[in-house]
Simulated scan of single mutants.
Amino acid sequence: MNPIVFILPGLNNSGPQHWQTHWEQQYGFIRIHQQDWDTPYAEDWIDTIDAAVKQHPLEQVILVGHSLACCTIVYWARKFNRTIKGALLVGPSDVDAPSYPPGTSGFMPMPLYRLPFPSITVASSNDQYVSIDRAQLFAEAWGSRLVNIGNCGHINSASNLGLWPAGMTLLQQLY
């Protein structure tokens, strides 16, 4: 049985050159569209995830979050306690860090709850929004396996990953 893969972009959405957009277009994954990409409220994002996910057999659902969507997934799991197939958490932004951009509401403090499903956290050693030490702390708290992909910035459009085959290999480990 094939998984149902949801793409969850972070703050400001994922543009045309982002690996999430490439995956959506290439593999037919489903993007969860949030009401407000630029000044989001956490409860809105959490409820939007749940509205999309609960329409499908949970045992088939895999969430692919980037940046702010990573902590949103953790808050969603805590609020709804739904057991899904798994989650790929890429470039989790540290919402508690001074470098985190302003404009978001309700995402702090950084959630440190154990996820009730398998997950892989992917981090870069030179991400301006999370240190590798903090990414390790998050992964441990979430019960997630940490994968450090080296110097790839925020693992976003600026990282020029294209279709990002190495990321797809990680995602397939959750299948």
Rank of each mutant, 00 (worst) to 15 (best):
A42R: 03
Y113L: 06
V74I: 11
D96R: 09
S131K: 12
N2G: 01
H66A: 11
V61F: 07
L170P: 03
A158Q: 14
W45K: 08
V5S: 02
A42F: 00
H56T: 05
I7Y: 03
I32C: 13
N160T: 08
G162W: 06
Y113E: 14
Q173N: 07
P92G: 13
D50N: 15
V122K: 11
L163G: 01
I73F: 00
H33Q: 15
L88A: 02
W76P: 01
G153V: 11
W37C: 04
S67T: 05
W37F: 07
Q17I: 02
Q34V: 00
P40N: 09
N156C: 08
H56Y: 12
V74M: 11
E43H: 04
E24F: 08
V90E: 04
A166D: 14
L170M: 14
N126E: 08
Y129V: 09
G91P: 06
S105L: 12
W23D: 09
G153P: 10
T21V: 07
S119W: 02
Q172T: 10
A77R: 07
L89A: 03
L58K: 13
P40M: 10
D127F: 01
L11M: 15
M110S: 14
L137P: 00
L112G: 00
M1N: 13
L174T: 02
E43G: 00
M110G: 02
P111L: 10
Q60E: 13
P116F: 01
D47K: 12
V90W: 04
F80Y: 15
W19G: 09
C152D: 07
L112H: 10
I49Q: 02
M1H: 12
Y27Q: 13
P101Y: 11
G167K: 10
M168E: 14
P111E: 14
Q136T: 15
A77S: 15
A135S: 14
D47N: 15
T48H: 04
I7V: 14
I30C: 03
Y129R: 05
F117A: 02
G86A: 08
R114P: 00
F107N: 00
L68G: 04
P9T: 12
A97H: 12
L161V: 07
L161H: 11
P92A: 15
A51I: 07
I132H: 05
D44K: 07
F107G: 01
S119A: 10
P109S: 12
T121E: 03
Q34R: 08
Q55A: 15
H154I: 02
Q173Y: 01
L63I: 05
L174E: 05
D133Y: 02
P9G: 11
P116V: 10
Y41W: 01
I4H: 08
N148H: 07
L115G: 00
S124E: 11
P165S: 09
G162L: 07
S131C: 06
W164K: 09
L146N: 12
N2T: 10
